[in-house]
Design a protein around this nucleic acid. Structure first.
Lengths: 318, 318
DNA sequence: CAGGTCGATGTAATCGATTCCATGAGCTTT
DNA sequence: AAAGCTCATGGAATCGATTACATCGACCTG
């Protein structure tokens, strides 16, 4: 009756609406969801809320979802598979209409089951291979190649990477892209120049210390995410060394703060907001019976000063 | 039956549990909530997800809530009262058990009604005066006094502030505390040294430009939150000026990035995690029938280099 | 004017879990 | 052995909204 059913007289509706207003009545979404079997709610499970990349993603997801008439419940996995499962389970129990996930690991049975059982699902940023779920992500391959070209042009030859967990696609892809780009310049990527991180600042610090302890430390360190870059910066500072004079630093995932660090950090920027919006559109398409589409958007290199400057750039600076 | 009712035989339970496991059955939280009239869910409405202070708050809130057996649904108001109302309404429709709010404005009728109607509610960080709702917050008075002492000791006399919206308690309190502390040193706070911001980076930029255009610009700018400090830093850089040589900068709300900015920024740190946990405990007390308690924790000054250095500090630096 | 149609409104079933109540089986007690 | 009691179990009402269906009156048409 409150849903604009055509078979209700105009004055009856007016009277009811007045009463609704006077009493402050609001429909019980719980009861409605039980009856209609839809909650008009999306679940979003992200790997780390403290990472500005994911908060920006969350913000754009909520924005687009709101525009399409959906709410979003965010679950923070903190890069822990068990927490990720906890949130997926809770969201499923709440009978959310669809699930957006940036998986922390190679795929929990819970999530695989849910996907197989037909829960509308879309992967954002990271994904799980071999599962029939649309993926919305950025392709960093070209940007990584640009980065290596930039570093090579600056004269750097010994390049190291702080990798993310191998269980995540972004973790392994970024290393692969880096290795391939290096190969194009005839540069090696020796094992001791691949540090194993976990996308958290502390691991960036630890790995960087290892690099600095090497008999021949790298000239540039490329961190596979922004938090590990922050940790790397900490480690370099703690040794009394300077960026970029003593060692260069670059990061995957650009954030506003990188403009203001000392020095400003060269980074690969993802079209984060667009990714979030595209992911929501794909998921809602799936929910509402339209064929969902995977989307891949290009990332791009943003050059700043953390890897050193070409002579030309130096001249133009007073 | 699934709820450990004592009147069920052991083997019957075992058999059912086996079936539950085999079929992957999960209870429908929607139906349960409808029947029991509780969702074991807390709503959290924060002013801005992109502000690291609030994401840290959100994280600690979710953590503590999870420990107490509750879920959290986060609503991001983006400092907009209309969005705040949207989220409060949605959360209320979902029949959340309680609401944590950091109000963006002086109090929407919606929220006041909800409080009066008996919805369990707790204010975090910011609050609305005259409403009978527990408040969990940090007191920055002493820290602001410490900051002014620090600045005065460095020889600075012309101190300006970028204020937050007057409609928020944190907006007006920080100005008041600053003015009082200045008075203790016999320093004035002229109107042109009070810039009106809105807790967003862009307003910090704008206000700082105004300060720099003054015939007698301030020697130090104190931003009432971290994002406005970021904007201020932008504005100073855009003029080709340097911090702290040309102008000092301090901020309310400390964040990890402030260690790595150029220069590291002196800030007032709140015990954010503790605030989030205390707020959840107060709210859950209220929900479960125990008397909730307001909590006020002290903030503290973290001195870095953005306001200049004393001669002694300079000497110890190589 | 009778039969039929259309639209307005009231009534009842439904969603899935909880929870209360009645039934009945098994047991003790006098 | 009959009465009383405990405890397991099945059945039904409930939560609040949606939705299909039945009913009824009014109006239209042949």
């Amino acid at each position: 009756m409150l849903n604009e059913h055509p078979s209700v007289s105009a004055e009856a509706r007016a009277r009811v609406l007045a009463a609704v207003d006077a009493l402050g009545y609001r429909p019980n979404a719980v009861a409605r969801s039980l009856r209609t079997d839809q909650t008009r709610t999306l679940g979003l499970v992200i790997s780390d809320v403290l990472n500005p990349y994911f908060t920006e993603l969350a913000r754009s997801v909520e924005e687009e979802a709101r525009a399409l008439g959906y709410s979003v419940i965010i679950g923070n996995a903190d890069e822990r598979p068990d927490l990720q499962d906890h949130h997926v389970r809770t969201l499923l129990d709440r009978r959310i209409d669809g699930l957006l996930v940036s998986p922390t690991d190679g795929g929990s049975p819970l999530m695989l089951d849910a996907a197989r059982a037909g829960t509308p699902m879309v992967f954002v940023d990271r994904w799980i291979p071999g599962v029939d779920v649309p993926v919305v992500r950025a392709d960093g391959r070209a940007a990584v190649r640009d980065l290596v070209a930039h570093l090579h042009g600056l004269g750097h030859r010994r390049l190291a990477i702080i990798a993310g967990p191998a269980a995540t696609t972004t973790g392994s892809e970024r290393v692969d892209a880096f290795r391939e780009a290096l190969a194009e310049y005839g540069l090696p990527l020796p094992g001791e120049y691949i540090g194993q991180g976990d996308f958290q600042a502390e691991s960036g610090r630890r790995v960087t210390e290892g690099f600095l302890d090497l008999p021949e430390p790298p000239e540039v360190v490329f961190a596979a995410d922004n938090l590990m870059a922050l940790g790397a910066l900490d480690a370099v500072r703690a040794r009394g060394l300077r960026v970029p004079e003593d060692i260069g630093l670059a990061a995957f995932d650009d954030i506003p703060w990188f403009v203001h660090t000392d020095p400003p950090i060269t980074a690969i920027a993802q079209p984060t907001g667009e990714l979030g919006r595209a992911a929501v559109r794909a998921l809602v398409d799936r929910i509402e019976g339209r064929p969902p589409q995977s989307v891949t958007l290009p990332a791009r290199l943003v050059v700043r000063r953390s890897c050193g400057e070409s002579p030309a750039e130096k001249r133009s600076r007073p």
